[in-house]
């Protein structure tokens, strides 16, 4: 055992980066679910975003543009879900699963000629002298812009949901769509926008994997992150800061267990490998012991005549 091989500063910096795809996807899904839409297509939107962002970044040489188009791609795919569930009134669970399967297939098709290509690298944000501060510098000021964007999105979602009229309306639609409709709010329009926001966030989360974390394109490379993001929203009781906590916890323990394995710590590897899931669930379940519950209209189909 050689714990000195683990550098806690690098570990924390790596955790923040590793958590970003889950964080982005989960935050987007949170907004959709607060508007009453259960979109199980997160995985499909992530992988579509991953390949859209990759293609654009490779062809234009600009990772930033790649992320923008990843968001557009994810949102475009989510529009399909919005059409199925809001216009055609299809079952949300089935439509979401279909969206995942469709996204996986579509991305594989789009990415056929992009295997083995190295994407342009996204530069870290230049904080100047701040990055040289011992310990805090590498942890807080040594990341790519998307890491900060993720945190800003969480903070904005929290602020909008909590303090603004728009947030109140969105929550009203999610809690009781009949009442919201009676008050004159456009339930379908609001839900469609929430779905698209979710798709855009998921798309960026996917592109983070293909452009920064790995960085390359491989079919099916999100490998289930979307499902973890979905579970995280529930365990975080539909609260943005808890999503952040959960994502960092999950990313952190995943990194920690890899580090411990590398250092040869005498804990059975099986326990280490399952620890991210267990610890995240336990912590968030304890936190959700308060009175938080799912949005009242979550997963229900809305039609004005009913």
């Amino acid at each position: 055992m050689d714990l000195s091989a683990i550098n806690p500063v690098i570990l924390i910096a790596a955790l923040i980066s590793a958590a970003t795809p889950i964080l982005l996807a989960a935050t987007g899904e949170l907004v959709a679910e607060r508007a009453g839409v259960l979109n199980l297509g997160v995985e499909g939107m992530m992988i579509t975003g991953a390949i859209c962002g990759f293609i654009i970044a490779v062809n234009t040489g600009s990772p930033a543009l790649g992320f923008v188009m990843a968001a557009v791609g994810g949102a475009a795919l989510s529009l399909l879900f919005a059409f199925l569930t809001q216009v055609a009134l299809a079952n949300q669970v089935a439509s979401g699963l279909a969206l995942t399967l469709f996204g996986l297939g579509l991305s594989a098709l789009m990415g056929q000629s992009y295997v083995g290509i190295k994407p342009p690298r996204m530069e870290d944000v230049a904080f100047g002298p701040l990055g040289d501060i011992p310990v805090l510098g590498p942890i807080l000021f040594s990341h790519d812009p998307i890491v900060y964007l993720g945190i800003i999105i969480v903070a904005s979602v929290w602020a909008v949901l909590t303090f603004t009229r728009a947030g109140l309306v969105l929550r009203a639609v999610g809690e009781n769509h009949d009442a919201a409709h009676a008050l004159g709010y456009k339930v379908k329009r609001i839900r469609t926008m929430a779905i698209m926001f979710g798709g855009a966030c998921a798309g960026m989360g996917g592109a983070y994997i293909s452009l920064i974390r790995v960085p390359q394109w491989t079919e099916g490379m999100t490998a289930g992150v979307g499902w973890i993001a979905l579970a995280l929203v529930v365990f975080a009781s539909w609260k943005p800061w808890r999503v952040l906590l959960g994502a960092y916890l999950f990313g952190g323990i995943t990194q920690l267990q890899l580090n411990l394995q590398g250092a040869g710590v005498a804990i059975p590897v099986e326990y280490l490998a399952m620890s991210p899931y267990i610890v995240t669930i336990i912590v968030l379940v304890i936190l959700s012991a308060d009175k938080s519950r799912a949005p009242g209209s979550l997963g229900r189909i809305f039609h004005a005549s009913q």
């Binding site: 550098n7 795809p21 974390r213 790995v214 490998a223 890899l258 580090n259 590398g262």
Partner: peptide, 16 residues
């Protein structure tokens, strides 16, 4: 098969 996890494992090994 999990590219993100495989990449993480490689990075950890390189860091160590």
């Amino acid at each position: 098969f999990d590219p993100a996890k495989e990449a993480d494992a490689a990075k950890v090994l390189i860091e160590q």
